[in-house]
Write a protein that binds this DNA or RNA. Structure first.
Lengths: 242, 242
DNA sequence: CGAAGTTGTCTATGATAATAGACAACTTCA
DNA sequence: TGAAGTTGTCTATTATCATAGACAACTTCG
């Protein structure tokens, strides 16, 4: 399984190893605190050079998923993010409650116009000007989800610039005078990650994602923003209230 | 977006470009036979070097998804639809089984009278009232065939309106209480597309078509509908059971 | 025919990926 | 204490990835 003797797939070997280990962590073969097999042993199971394994482990350590201890071994650090789905849902609060550090990063903010579906969700007319924000959210250094968010360009002028500065949807809404908001009906489906999102989420091609569509309303019920989010299924666990 | 100035994700750039193009083909932005944008234009949209685009296109060509023509352009290869010819043949099932999205569209529904040949096929008298339905069937957004279907106007009143609503011959028959049906003898010939069908199939003049004549019967053997279908030969491949 | 636009091929350069071997530094455990 | 096993670091080599430029070969269209 070297790059030299097989047709290249366009995915680096170290990435395949890293994804394999992460999958082992995600599905519980390696629990939090467990010691991973030695670098030599991993290299043998994947039939790869030890340095390639080290590259993979370094990538996982960079994201805080594992921690290497010289002379002893490499240990699993993290676990799935428990993500409760309530009407009052704030990414930063959920991540902070787990003792992890939430981050947000703007990928792109562009102008858009309302399709029929978007217009219905936001209570606007078809063709109304919108701001479309592509953003990624992380817990510590692990990407959790990418979201596409649409807001009315009339109600929230320069929303993209404000989000880039605050890195938080909650703070963006505060900036426009929205003190509180609630999440409306949430639709959850699943799919396979595409290449673009895979790169953004640092996720292997072909891995499952949870797709969440939701619209946030203010306390009077007026739609504020509608979102289309893709979560790395192996890094998160949705909790629905009973 | 080069490997030099961003943190590497372990996924090659050419792979991201190839996946993006393939997605465009899959969801119909590039239909079968379409000319892709020039290599330079693709390179600009993905912000990569032209050689990287060529690597991506080579990977797609390797799989037969596209075909490059020197001096002219790169074209989407008609992924021929594998169309098994069994006694129980449903267009939507065949297309769905290939992982493509079946569609049907009514072109025209008119009244007609039975010729001697139609009367023989449908077990009616010459001159009996018929409904003639002209429809087009697509896989994803690629037109596959146009069909002329005749039904007895006495047995299936307002068949045209029902087909327009359901867009499916199977559902039309269900609407009239036909739970199941079988295809009788099927005759296959070939010809050259005429101007009318060429426009409907989005096919170049002079291209070959597969012509299929068949009559469907209910489970007692009574004729229900008889069809005259013209398939774009370059987009379909009939499979006959051995 | 000629100009413009397209794909094909060549050379070249630098960064990354993967391999290989050797040894240091450290931990664990008998 | 010492042996075994672990991670960390170094040098070195080869192949792939991505960029860049130039030009050939071909098609299309006026």
């Amino acid at each position: 399984m070297s790059m030299q003797d097989t047709a290249s797939s366009g995915v680096a070997l170290w990435r395949l190893v890293a994804d394999g280990i992460e999958r082992g962590i995600a599905d519980g073969r390696f629990a939090a605190g467990d010691k991973l097999p030695g670098e030599m042993e991993i290299a043998e199971t994947y039939r790869v050079n030890r340095h390639t394994v080290r590259r993979a482990l370094a990538a996982l350590a960079e994201r805080g998923l594992v921690r290497a201890e010289r002379g002893s071994g490499t240990y699993v650090e993290a676990q799935k993010l428990a993500y409760p789905l309530r009407s009052r849902t704030r990414f930063s609060e959920i991540v902070g409650a787990e003792g992890r550090e939430p981050h947000g990063r703007l990928i792109e903010a562009t102008d858009d116009v309302a399709t029929r579906e978007l217009a219905r969700e936001l209570g606007l007319k078809v063709g109304a000007p919108l701001v479309r924000i592509e953003a990624i959210r992380l817990a510590d250094r692990t990407p959790i989800c990418v979201s596409t968010t649409w807001l009315s360009a009339d109600l929230f002028p320069n929303a993209g610039a404000v989000f880039a500065a605050t890195r938080s949807m909650t703070k963006l809404l505060e900036h426009f005078g929205v003190r509180d908001y609630r999440r409306g009906a949430t639709r959850i489906t699943a799919g396979i990650v595409d290449a673009t999102d895979a790169a953004r989420l640092d996720l292997a091609l072909g891995r499952p994602i949870l797709v969440v569509d939701a619209t946030d309303h203010d306390l009077t019920g007026k739609p504020l923003v509608t979102k289309h989010s893709r979560f790395a299924a192996e890094r998160v666990e949705f909790l629905v209230e009973s």
